[in-house]
Design a binder for these strands. Sequence first.
DNA 1: CATGAATGAGTGTTCATTCAT
DNA 2: GATGAATGAACACTCATTCAT
Lengths: 223, 223, 223, 223
Amino acid sequence: MPQSPTPSADQTPRRERRKEARPGELLEAALDVFVEKGFAATRVEEIAARAGVSKGTLFLYFSSKEELFKAVVRKNISGLYANWSAEIDCMTASSTEMLAHAMQEWWKHVGSTKAGGLCKLMAAESGNFPELIDFYQQEVEAPGTALLARIVQRGIDRSEFRPVDVNYAAYVLKAPLAFLMLHPQGDDGIPGFDPDRFLSVQVDLLLHGLAVPQRPQDMPAAS
Amino acid sequence: MPQSPTPSADQTPRRERRKEARPGELLEAALDVFVEKGFAATRVEEIAARAGVSKGTLFLYFSSKEELFKAVVRKNISGLYANWSAEIDCMTASSTEMLAHAMQEWWKHVGSTKAGGLCKLMAAESGNFPELIDFYQQEVEAPGTALLARIVQRGIDRSEFRPVDVNYAAYVLKAPLAFLMLHPQGDDGIPGFDPDRFLSVQVDLLLHGLAVPQRPQDMPAAS
Amino acid sequence: MPQSPTPSADQTPRRERRKEARPGELLEAALDVFVEKGFAATRVEEIAARAGVSKGTLFLYFSSKEELFKAVVRKNISGLYANWSAEIDCMTASSTEMLAHAMQEWWKHVGSTKAGGLCKLMAAESGNFPELIDFYQQEVEAPGTALLARIVQRGIDRSEFRPVDVNYAAYVLKAPLAFLMLHPQGDDGIPGFDPDRFLSVQVDLLLHGLAVPQRPQDMPAAS
Amino acid sequence: MPQSPTPSADQTPRRERRKEARPGELLEAALDVFVEKGFAATRVEEIAARAGVSKGTLFLYFSSKEELFKAVVRKNISGLYANWSAEIDCMTASSTEMLAHAMQEWWKHVGSTKAGGLCKLMAAESGNFPELIDFYQQEVEAPGTALLARIVQRGIDRSEFRPVDVNYAAYVLKAPLAFLMLHPQGDDGIPGFDPDRFLSVQVDLLLHGLAVPQRPQDMPAAS
DNA sequence: CATGAATGAGTGTTCATTCAT
DNA sequence: GATGAATGAACACTCATTCAT
């Protein structure tokens, strides 16, 4: 005990400890309210209240409602792509497995969580808030598409996949995720609908097609 | 009820006809503006102006902005799939063609139109209209899924398709349509993204799969 | 009965009559409050309250606090210069009399009235609200200077005045008016100070100089 | 007593000296910011920052923004004219030169400095500080007027000036200074306006008049 | 004494809703 | 019925002031 004679676990004074925790608490509250109400319909005062602070305090940490929203997106979505991209590089699995894995991971960590609500939000309120949509496009949509395109390209390079337009393939792969995200889950959802089952079927179909193979015959290797 | 039982050309004097037409004109204007701006960002004054009436008059027919929105949804979404189902029954094309046709038709007549915009809105601002969500589920989602499921079942029955879970297959087929609807088109959209091209790739992938057939044999190149 | 049987003086309905009076009432109230409190310290709500309307109504007629202020300036100052300039053109008095007249008129109709407070305001809050000061410069200062410069030029042309730099002379002439305006009048003012007397002395000095003429001798006509 | 026990150079430890210097540093910073921004537009936080202390510390020394402003006025305006009066008494120049000198000096040492800015502020926002107005009248306006009046009286006594009402003449002389002070200098000012030139023209006019001498006779051109 | 995190009343502005005409 | 002038409750954001540390 170098310093104070009563060295409890709480060395930092309460005020200071709170200061460091504030942004995180606000970000969490903001995520909840934005997802619940949408961007336009969210009142900053409610976010502040849920974080247990006053309106003024919120603006101490985030300079505007829009900045706060961006911070929420960065914290909950943007960062994930960086990790995933790195993860891809050191995987040895087949590209098929990789694709299935990537989609399942996205659903588990984004789509099925509150972060998924953010994506829904952006799609909905895109018309207004043009600055926000640009940000979202760059920070979320583009990296996501790029990640999937990279896996598809890898599959093509390794002759696992047919040669297709990788960008459109990436969009196709994203579609079911968007679909999943859009649909209300839980009580309001389609009764008996199981997201994981849906993803399995989706991956099976995308990889093997719906059509019955037409009498498998010789096929020249993809040029 | 727009179709009165006595559909004469012009019996009612013009003044009165306008009076009876008012709600319809307002609903039409409201559809336009809501789709363009979103619910929160829409000003009732603009709707009134587009319908050629004063703000006060709007409130004569709809007790609030929210009621007006509900009326718009009810008018435009209900019965969306009524005719289509019948059309299916008398088609003789292959199930593959049917599927491609159905998806393209949906995009052409719903997804890319104002009705599509309404669906986007519903998804987006559903949080604020919990009562509408069931309605939307029953009137739009369920029939759409059923329609696709029927085609898939037909394909399986005729040995055109592999036997798969028809409901999940239907969801899978709806996914790209939802994706398409969600994404902003025109200037705000992804540069270089072509919805029709996207649908082609999608249909190709869903029917033939992404994976190279396991036991590569001779097969004529798909024309 | 097209012509109602009780044709009182009030043919226009009360609501409508008010509508036409509103801008004037608001402008009057705004003049009072702006002069009393300064631009920044004035709350639009107080202006509205003094005009007997709600805050919202004010914005029905003026799109912002700044626009309202500009309108006040236009109504109370800008317009006067146009009249004066025309008046000048048809006067036959000597340039000396004209100058004295112009300055007295300005003091009577602007400087000594609430409008004078506006000028004081502009000088004070010039640092902030750069848009406002540009407007004021163009709308008030420039025309005022131009008017005085014109009279001085006329005097020079008619050999009534010595040839001097007319623009600086105009500034010199404006100086005492600015001085007058700046000084609190009434109870707070300098005891025994009489603005009219001040102007007389000023005009006398500016025209004849303070210095004793040095033995009047031959002097070549101004080239 | 060469090393007096009290007025040493630096007996107090640095910490404490800072403590005692605080109010002065704050007043200096406040002067700067108030003059730059005006009272309403000044943020106490900026004053504190410029003084190198925290916002809270400022309130330790001044109970409110308003009190701080008053203190600034009292510190910077009082005694403005104390020395000048003595200086006048021992000058031997002509009264004409004295007047020109006095006005130029005032502009150089007061009008164009921060103190001048304070006067502008006082005039502008006086409405919000009624108690300061008497103070300003006694400490600034009155002594300034008296000083000029004394010079004019001297000129009359020495037959340099025409006999005029000395008090009003003093006001007339102050007018251009007030005018100068009021007008924004630098970039915001009237383009091409030169304060020194303005003062020259002013002095020339006030001393020799604008009007051509009535009985034009030979007179050497003013050098 | 000094700090700076926290506050909350206050600001200009918007817009759904009302109601006298 | 139809109008549109009027309303006032919100809203995002600011900043003088307080007070726990």
